[in-house]
Simulated assay, not measured.
Amino acid sequence: MSKKKVVSIEDRIPKLKQARKKKANRRLVFYLTLFFVLISIVVYLQSSLSNVHHINVVGNSYISKEEIRKLSEITNDDNFWSIDKESIQSNISQHPEIKSADVSRSFPTTVNIGVQELERVGYIKQDGIYFPLLENGDKLDSHPLETMSGDAPFLTNFTKPIYLNELAKELLALPDTIVDLISEITWQPTEGNPYKVLVFMNDGFEVEASIRNFSKSMKVYPSITSQLEEGSKGIINIGVGGAVFNPYSDDINTEIEKESQNEGER
């Protein structure tokens, strides 16, 4: 039988003291580290290091980034962590051409501003100056233009806002591929149809249509023109029952197959 080694208390005391010393040192290092971290945070928050250094703007097409930054009222003196996002969003949304705004932070010092603008669905000319027409039917008086940008149709002869507002909604619902084909829309009301419009297309055709269901009717335009002889030009009348083509060269009416109209109803 082996004998167990007996360690005296005198031999164990130095080891206990050494273990306690290491534990005390680790605790001291932890508290010192925590202290310096807290001091660093306080210094960071109280210094210009925590101020906003960059403002990133996305989603804008018509309004400049600089204008949106001014609307936000954020400056380089503002603390990155104390900015009021709801207040900034409210400030930016006051612009008549902005539908909504979203504000977020990106560490360490960047504020992100995302905006959604109201679509420009047309342009109106008054006293030689062009004004954008927004999707809500409002004329953007605050942004007069000397020339049109060509991203929306030119709207003429609209003397009653009610019809202009309804056309704005219809243009918003129309696919961009069709809107890009439209050069000008003229209001031509008759006694029997106050909603009648004449549409001038970029490919040389004219279209007689109604403001009511305008987007639905114009969606079939490419299908209608694909059935016409190459090089032919004239007026296409799109009605409830179908479409009729009147060539410029003669007075013959050519009825377009009704399947084109049916495609728009699907």
Rank of each mutant, 00 (worst) to 15 (best):
M1T: 09
S2W: 00
K4C: 00
V7M: 03
V7E: 01
S8Q: 07
P14I: 09
R20Q: 10
A24W: 06
A24Y: 06
N25T: 08
R27K: 06
R27E: 06
R27G: 03
R27T: 11
V29R: 06
F30Q: 11
Y31E: 01
T33W: 01
V37A: 05
V37D: 02
L38Q: 02
S40V: 09
V42E: 04
L45G: 07
Q46E: 11
Q46F: 11
S47E: 11
N51C: 03
N51S: 10
V52Q: 06
N60G: 01
N60W: 00
S61H: 13
K65M: 06
E66T: 15
K70F: 14
E73A: 15
T75S: 15
N76K: 15
D77I: 12
N79V: 14
W81P: 12
S82L: 15
K85Y: 09
K85W: 04
S87F: 09
S87R: 15
Q89I: 09
Q89H: 02
Q89A: 14
N91K: 13
S93D: 09
K99C: 02
S104C: 01
S104Y: 08
R105D: 01
P108N: 02
V111N: 00
V111W: 02
N112P: 01
N112W: 03
G114W: 02
Q116W: 00
L118S: 01
L118G: 00
E119N: 04
E119Q: 05
E119R: 03
R120E: 05
K125M: 07
Q126P: 00
I129E: 02
P132E: 05
E135V: 08
G137S: 02
K139G: 00
K139S: 05
S142Y: 00
H143W: 13
P144D: 01
P144M: 03
L145D: 00
E146W: 00
S149K: 05
A152C: 06
P153V: 12
F154D: 14
F154V: 08
L155H: 08
L155S: 03
K160W: 03
P161D: 14
I162W: 04
I162E: 15
N165D: 10
K169L: 08
L171W: 04
D176S: 15
D180M: 13
S183K: 13
S183I: 11
E184D: 12
E184N: 13
E184Y: 10
W187Q: 13
P189D: 15
T190G: 15
E191L: 12
G192Y: 05
P194M: 02
K196C: 06
V197Y: 05
F200V: 11
F200M: 09
E206K: 12
V207A: 04
N213I: 03
K216N: 09
K216D: 10
M218P: 07
K219W: 07
V220Q: 15
Y221K: 03
P222T: 13
S223F: 12
I224N: 12
I224F: 02
E229M: 11
G231H: 10
G231I: 13
G242P: 13
A243K: 10
V244K: 08
I252S: 12
I252G: 00
T254K: 10
E255L: 10
E257S: 15
K258P: 00
N262Y: 03
N262M: 07
E263A: 08
E263H: 06
R266I: 12
